[in-house]
Simulated assay, not measured.
Amino acid sequence: METDKKSDANILKTYLRYLKLERNYSQNTIDAYAHDIAWLMDYCDRESRKPTALQPEDLQHFAASLHEYQVGPRSQARILSGVRSFYRYLLLDGYIETDPTELLESPVLGQHLPEVLSTEEVDLLEQSIDLSKPEGQRNRAIIEMLFSCGLRVSELVNLKLSQLHLEEGFIRVLGKGSKERLVPISPRAIKELKLWFTDRVHLKIKRGEEDFVFLSKRGGHLTRTMILIMIKRQAEEAGLKKTISPHTLRHSFATALLKGGADLRAIQAMLGHESIGTTEIYTHIDTTTLREEILNHHPRNMKKP
Rank of each mutant, 00 (worst) to 15 (best):
H67Q: 12
M270R: 02
L271Y: 05
F214A: 09
I30R: 02
H247C: 12
I96V: 15
L146P: 06
K241N: 15
N28W: 00
I227H: 03
E280T: 06
S148T: 06
S252I: 15
G136M: 09
R74D: 11
S75M: 05
F86W: 05
L193R: 10
Y95P: 00
A254R: 06
D36M: 09
A34G: 08
S75L: 05
E274D: 09
G110F: 01
A262D: 08
L215R: 01
L59P: 01
D123C: 06
P51G: 08
A9W: 02
L156F: 12
H112D: 03
Q268K: 15
L215Q: 12
A266E: 06
P107C: 10
D123V: 11
P114N: 02
Q60N: 14
E292W: 09
P305L: 10
H35S: 13
H202P: 00
L109E: 12
Q127E: 09
T279E: 07
T52C: 03
S148L: 05
V201F: 02
R138V: 08
L203D: 03
E126L: 14
P107L: 04
R74Y: 13
D4N: 14
F214I: 06
G277D: 15
Y282H: 06
T225L: 11
P299H: 13
H112P: 00
D8C: 14
D36K: 02
G175T: 02
L80T: 08
I229G: 02
P299Q: 12
G175L: 12
H284S: 10
T198F: 01
G175K: 07
I143M: 13
L258G: 11
N158C: 13
H221P: 15
I79A: 04
R188C: 13
M302S: 12
T198D: 08
K304A: 09
L182V: 14
I30Q: 04
Q27N: 02
W196K: 07
Q234S: 01
P187C: 07
A32G: 01
D4K: 10
E236I: 08
M145F: 10
T119D: 08
N158F: 09
F197Y: 15
K204D: 11
Q60P: 00
L104T: 05
Y95V: 00
Q111N: 10
D58T: 07
L240N: 05
Q27H: 00
P100H: 09
